[in-house]
Design a protein around this nucleic acid. Structure first.
Lengths: 193, 193
DNA sequence: TTCATTTATTGAACTTGTTCAATGTTTTTG
DNA sequence: CAAAAACATTGAACAAGTTCAATAAATGAA
């Protein structure tokens, strides 16, 4: 449970056992039923979360009522709305559990406390933010240049574990296409074999 | 020259005059002619740069030879390839001056030195990375949901200063559409008035 | 200034992806 | 287990955006 968090932290920075213990103690566990929300539009995001079990979607709803999915988070992913969290403003995002899930949360206060006390934690989050930023740049470039077919293929290749747990509707909202078209892409791919 | 850098830093973190001086001393000025490159694909990005004057484009070229522009950087913007810079791997990006430009560069070594010596500098870059990340998330969402027309309008509204200095070709490569279609969008908009 | 190069515009034919509506399939839930 | 709800598939008509080719306009370099 907390073990996976420790492993994840250790994967990014080298930190003493004591510091690790101290950092992990800031987290409290939250169990969530499928289809419940960790964050809703309009709320201020007061936490940063580590997914211990389950699956979440982080998404936005536009003026026309369409959903755009920013990312899916399964085990060992972090979830928050950085903008709302760091700037204390109302979120534009929803974070919803798509399966029964368990998440480890740290509050804003505790995170700041950790920053002040444990210099490596500042580094941890800087490194993680950089990594997600690089991944998002990559996705942006792909979105600018590739067809929906290619993006779908890339997605199932890149996230085979997500893929199995998601519906067409959700994949469509991530790729920025209609779910009907996802069906048509699947058919095309199947017939190609 | 260095003044604009100081102002930019002060805008993000509160730092003493001494520390500011020390940090800014790490930078050296580079003057660049239009159409010259600060970074080419395959090179390792050894710098982080602050644009004092001019205009740059940061872009990628895909397998089919098409360019996707990640962003434009004018005065007071920072430029680097985070992935290449932080992980020491060959860049997938080009950074090119689109006008005669002046940029203030800090090397990787000096930046690490600054991190170690001036704790607020770590914060500075963390805050800046977060801001660019939030902006990119916003752009991703818009790209998933909006039509080319709307994205074009958003662009000229959001970056009126960039817009005047860019060609249709460049705006097209940023929006992920053909430059012919940019022409058609412009015509449509003009006829609507 | 002049010639070459780059950039912008336009139209026609085409491709990609959307929308809507109907139907079948799977999953949830009482 | 049965009924309801959510999800997936399909086709037809449509809209959005591309490609190609031709021409005009602007810019740059000698």
């Amino acid at each position: 449970m907390i073990e996976s968090l420790k492993q994840n932290v250790a994967h990014h920075v080298s930190i003493s056992d004591n510091e690790m213990e101290e950092f992990c103690n800031f987290f409290h566990k939250k169990t969530m039923k499928k289809k419940t929300f960790l964050l809703r539009e309009g709320e201020v995001c007061e936490f940063e979360g580590f997914v211990a079990k389950g699956l979440f979607r982080v998404y936005h709803i536009d003026q026309n009522g369409f959903e755009q999915i920013l990312y899916f988070a399964i085990e060992n992913w972090w979830i928050t709305d950085i903008d709302s969290f760091t700037n204390g403003k109302p979120s534009q995002l929803f974070i919803e559990a798509l399966e029964d899930s368990e998440v480890l949360l740290i509050t804003k206060k505790d995170k700041e406390f950790a920053y002040a006390k444990l210099p490596l934690i500042e580094k941890l989050f800087r490194v993680m933010t950089q990594k997600t930023h690089v991944a998002l740049q990559r996705r942006m470039i792909d979105n600018l240049s590739k067809t929906a077919d290619q993006r779908y293929l890339d997605f199932i290749e890149k996230y085979p574990n997500h893929y199995k747990r998601l519906t067409n509707l959700q994949i469509a909202a991530y790729l920025g296409i209609s779910h009907e078209f996802v069906s048509k892409i699947r058919r095309k791919i199947a017939s190609r074999k």
